[in-house]
Write a protein that binds this DNA or RNA. Structure first.
Lengths: 342, 342
DNA sequence: GGATTTCTTGTAAACGGTTACATACTAGGC
DNA sequence: GCCTAGTATGTAACCGTTTACAAGAAATCC
């Protein structure tokens, strides 16, 4: 027939001599179509070189098989690794990922979320539990499911998957306390709009309090997420007349900075200073001295977040709060303080 | 009126008492609508809490304001940085990015490209110039523009933006040659399906040939992109009875591995071994010894790729082949070989 | 002041799929 | 052999926008 469309599903239908409905069925729900028809349609798809038009499909089915993720920054090994895992998993189940960054700005995060909802994502992966007030309302209005990743807060009515940062930081602090340190400082990430950073500081403080250890306020420094900033913080800390013998760091990158700067300033790690990190990035075991740190299975965590949403969207039963284990990895950067000062 | 829609552009139209066409115009082309109407519609958008439905918009306008990018892996500082820049730029001009990974597999890349086309991307950012035969044909069939990033090949009829890897590697080799080295090895990335890696090897070989330097074949090792593999390669190279006094590396991560392993094996860098990297990642200047390497403005490069596509899609005049400058950064990891062996 | 142009807004037909519903056919049951 | 239930396929409405075209109003020209 002359009027048949040149492309799209109608072209396939014309080629196979069937209706568009059958083509659609053969593609989306193969069992609902007889074997011979299915084969004929498959052949037609091949000859026409048909690639389905996702937006059209979404418009009529109200499902995009696309998830959105908003991370503070992608330029950070840990997020990169998490996103990579999430993406790999999603790809394996036929989903795609829209990735955006907020730069630790809550307004920007809301803006991005709006953008993603506009884009028609089926679900959203968010970082932590610290969001703009309007965010959850907006997601509820448009009934877009979401999950907070990287934290474990079973007390919240929202799904999450991650480690208990407070407990893990407590463990890290306990490690240096048990080694005999009493003069302990902390270099944390910026706590503003970052519940993970805050939780870690809280865990650290709890450990200190439980052992009756007082810490001078100047031993707590907050830094952005870069090696340079961490080095500067270390320079400050090590330059104090009254300085700590151990430093617990909010993450591994900060710990690297402290390590590098200590060595640069002539301090030996761990003899003069013990350093503990958090995250266990690749470099931690390669560095010399290698870094004692809290291992967090980042890849797993993000993949689980994806699994949760995919299952939820498929209508399956899911558990809302999933705790991911952490573990303390003791390496060369921590030792008893008795070796040097007492 | 009772029959007016509860949501979508029709709700806004009803609220403002205008037609959907006017709402659409007010949103997409504000100038085409009178000021008072524009204001009334803006108010209606606000009260209704309207978020446009991108797939529907795309279906009718044939434009998605979305680009796709396919990288070998995101779990790699350099790509992460590039993607971050691209993403930031796109976001600033109202575009979004679909990010997928191919794992250095050409078939997977084609598959991902098909997926992205299906998703309706307006353009595609690809890595290098080594793709599946069917890829360019498919993109041509669906008239999806693309650009190769990270290479500079003005001889090709396809757009690209990046540095001349051959020339840059030549420069790196020249550096150690000029320092007086004659016993020079190379640890490159896997050349299979990686034209950048091959170009770098070629540049290195050209420099060697130009100076009449012969290299025993066992001094060329190829490794995947991980610290562990690079360390193993270094262990092998340094374990040879007849070993080089300088090693040129295919990228910084490989160089880090060589550096770490050399130190671990008791060799001093640069006294016993000079090491040159390529890319100038963050760690290069922080490491001790800091790494001599080729600096490549990765962020710029990727942003330019985005700019090219956005301009091209806007119908603006664009230059097809954009060369991005590299520069040799001399740091502590290279020195004249005379200090030790001669 | 009437004709012509320009500007503003509305009407309705796409865009490319999915899917509720209708229909034709097949196979059992008795 | 007729009725019923079930299966396979087709018909066409609909998803939420954009946009070509039409129409009405205002401005310009002579």
């Amino acid at each position: 027939m002359e009027r048949s469309a040149k492309q799209g599903i109608r072209a396939v239908a014309a080629e196979a001599g069937v209706s568009t409905a059958s083509v659609s069925r053969a593609l989306n729900n193969p069992d609902s179509v007889s074997a011979p028809l299915r084969a004929r349609i498959a052949r037609a798809v091949e000859t026409v070189g048909y690639i389905p038009h996702a937006p059209a499909r979404e418009l009529s089915s109200r499902r995009s098989r696309t998830l959105g993720a908003i991370v503070p920054t992608i330029d950070n090994t840990m997020f990169a690794r998490g996103i990579a895992s999430l993406q790999k998993y999603l790809s394996s189940v036929g989903y795609m990922l829209f990735l955006t960054t907020s730069g630790y700005d809550l307004d920007a995060e809301l803006e991005q979320a709006r953008n993603l909802v506009s884009r028609g994502v089926d679900g959203l992966v968010l970082r932590g539990d610290c969001h703009h007030d309007g965010l959850r309302k907006m997601l509820a209005d448009y009934s877009v499911p979401f999950i907070n990743v990287g934290i474990y807060r079973p007390d919240r009515p929202y799904p999450c998957v991650g480690t208990d940062n407070e407990a893990a930081a407590h463990r890290a602090a306990l490690h240096v306390i048990e080694l005999g340190h009493r003069r302990i400082g902390i270099v944390s990430a910026l706590q503003r709009n970052n519940d993970r950073a805050s939780a870690r500081v809280a865990g650290f403080r709890r450990a200190m309090a439980e052992h009756g250890i007082k810490m001078p306020p100047q031993w707590h420094v907050e830094v952005p997420y870069t090696l340079d900033d961490a080095r500067e913080a270390a320079r400050y800390l090590l330059g104090l007349k009254d300085r700590p013998t151990a430093v617990v760091c909010g993450n591994d990158v900060i710990a690297y900075g402290v390590l590098l700067e200590a060595e640069r300033s002539g301090f030996s790690v761990p003899d003069d200073l013990s350093v503990v990190g958090f995250d266990d990035l690749d470099w931690s075991r390669h560095l010399r001295p290698s870094l004692t740190t809290i291992h967090v299975p980042t890849g797993d965590t993000w993949q689980r977040a994806g699994e949760y949403l995919v299952r939820h969207l498929a209508g399956e039963q899911t558990i809302m709060h999933h705790e991911v284990d952490y573990s303390l990895i003791v390496r060369e950067s921590t030792a008893s303080p008795t070796r040097s000062s007492k």
